[in-house]
Write a protein that binds this DNA or RNA. Structure first.
Lengths: 235, 235
DNA sequence: ATTGATTTGTTCGTATGTATC
DNA sequence: GGATACATACGAACAAATCAA
C-alpha cells in the first residue's frame, strides 16, 4: 500500500504536479483514503530518496534536484532505480558473455567460495554515440540458471525481475579512481593508465543474499556521481 | 527515545555484542521497555545505516562491514557521522581561515545570492603523518556569526553542535575525478594535473536550511568511498 | 508579544498478513 | 500444520515547531 502511494507521490513530484510543498498529511490521508501512519511511511520513502525536506510545524518542501545533466549519475535510489534514470538511454555493446569460475581474488571480494561458477558479462555502454562506461558484471549461476543473449543485450535487471523475481534491494558500493589497463584502454579508446572514476557494487536481493557483483569504469566527460544522504537521524 | 535505542544498538553491534543476529523484536521490546513500533523505528535507523539485513520470518542479521581500512571512507551514515569513524584520527593543518564574499560561480553552486558572506576554511589533513586530503569549506556567517580559531584547528562540527546546536542532517554529495591545480598540487606534494578523487558536499541542518559547502580532494593511497544503499523499497 | 490553530514528530495499543523454521 | 518472527495497517493521544491573527 505505502509503496504504491510513495511511487505515486514520486511520479507526481517528477511531473511537477506540486509547486514547492506537498499537501499536508491530512489532505494526503483523505486523498488516498489511508491512515496517517501509512501516509507517513510513504513519505519516509520519498524523503529517503532525497526528494523532500521535512519541517516540523510547517510542511514537506520539495527539493530542487541537481541539474539533470547526463554527466550526473544518481545513486540515491539504490541500484535498481539508478538504472532507470539515465541508463534507459544507454546503448550496450556486449564484449564478453560467458561462464567462469571466479579466481581467489574475486571470490574474496564477493565472499563466495573459490571457483564459484558465475556468468560474466562485459559491456561497453554509450550515451548518444559517446562512450559512457565499461561494465564488467558477474551473476551467480546458482541463483540465475539461465541468462539469455537477449537479456544481456537489453536490460539484465528487468530480465531478472520478470524471470526470477530477483530485484536488487540493497548494495555495497565502492568508489575510487583507477588507471586503465591496456585492455580497458583499447576498448574505451583512451590512453593506457588514464585515471577514471570506478564504481564497484555488490548487489543483494530481497532476503539479503548476494547475487551480483559489478565493476564499472566511467569515461563520460565530466561524469559525476550524485547521492543524497538523508539518514533517519540518530544523534 | 528511538534515537537512543538506535545508537545503543549501533554501539553494541560495533562492539560485537551480538553474534550474527539481533535479538527478536519481542526481546528488544522487553529489554528497552518500549512498544513494538518504537523498536521497529529504531531498527529502521540501524538498517538504513547498512548494519543489518532483515529477513521476514527469520530475523535481523548483522552485515559484515567492509574491511575497516583507513583507505575506505564510509559515507553511509551521512556527513555528521562519517566524521566520527575515520576522521577522528585525522590531524589538520589550517592553510587559510578568513571571511570572503562568494563569487558568482560559487554562489550558484550553493544556491545563495552573489556576494554572500561566508567563512572560508582550507585545511590540509593527514592520517598518521601521511597526507590524506585537502578540504576547502565554506560556512554561512549569517547562521554562524563567530567561528573560532580553536574550532577550526579542532573539530568544526562539534563546535557548531555545542555552540549553535547546528548538526548536519542531510547532504547533497557529488563525487568526481579532478585534476590538481598548481596551488593544490604544491600543498598536497603532488604533480600538477594529478587525477584525484574529489567530493563536493552541500550540508543542510535540521530545518532543511543550507549552512555549509565543502570541496575535498583526497590523495591518500588507495582511497575508496564506501556507502551502503538500502532504500526503504518502493518497487 | 501572546495566543491559538495548523502541521509534523513521537509513542502507544491492536489487529492481521506473510515468510521462515 | 503449528509456532515464531517480521511486515503492514488502523486508531488515538500528546509533544513540539511553525505560522498567522
Amino acid at each position: 500500500m505505502y509503496h504504491e502511494i510513495a511511487n505515486d507521490i514520486i511520479n507526481k513530484i517528477n511531473q511537477g504536479d506540486f509547486d514547492t510543498k506537498l499537501p499536508t498529511e491530512q489532505e494526503l490521508m483523505a486523498r488516498y483514503g489511508v491512515s496517517r501512519n501509512t501516509i507517513r511511511r510513504a513519505i519516509d520513502v520519498v524523503y529517503q530518496r532525497g526528494l523532500l525536506r521535512r519541517v516540523q510545524g510547517s510542511g514537506y518542501y520539495i527539493n530542487r534536484q541537481p541539474s539533470a545533466s547526463k554527466a550526473i549519475m544518481n545513486l540515491s535510489a539504490g541500484t535498481g532505480n539508478a538504472m532507470h534514470s539515465a541508463e534507459t538511454h544507454l546503448t550496450s555493446k556486449v564484449v564478453t558473455f560467458d561462464k567462469v569460475n571466479v579466481d581467489h581474488e574475486y571470490a574474496r571480494l564477493m565472499h563466495v567460495p573459490d571457483g564459484t561458477e558465475m556468468y560474466r558479462v562485459v559491456r561497453l555502454r554509450s550515451l548518444e554515440g559517446e562512450l559512457y562506461c565499461l561494465e564488467q558484471a558477474y551473476f551467480l549461476t546458482k541463483l540465475i540458471p539461465v541468462l539469455t543473449v537477449e537479456a544481456v543485450n537489453d536490460s539484465i535487471l528487468t530480465f531478472l525481475k520478470e524471470t526470477y523475481a530477483i530485484t536488487p534491494t540493497s548494495s555495497d558500493d565502492f568508489v575510487s579512481v583507477e588507471q586503465l589497463t591496456a585492455d580497458q584502454a583499447s576498448l574505451l579508446e583512451r590512453p593506457v593508465g588514464d585515471s577514471v572514476l570506478c564504481l564497484s557494487q555488490l548487489n543483494y536481493c530481497g532476503n539479503g543474499t548476494f547475487f551480483n557483483y559489478s565493476i564499472t569504469h566511467y569515461v563520460y566527460p565530466g561524469i559525476h556521481f550524485y547521492f543524497h544522504a538523508a539518514p533517519l537521524a540518530s544523534n
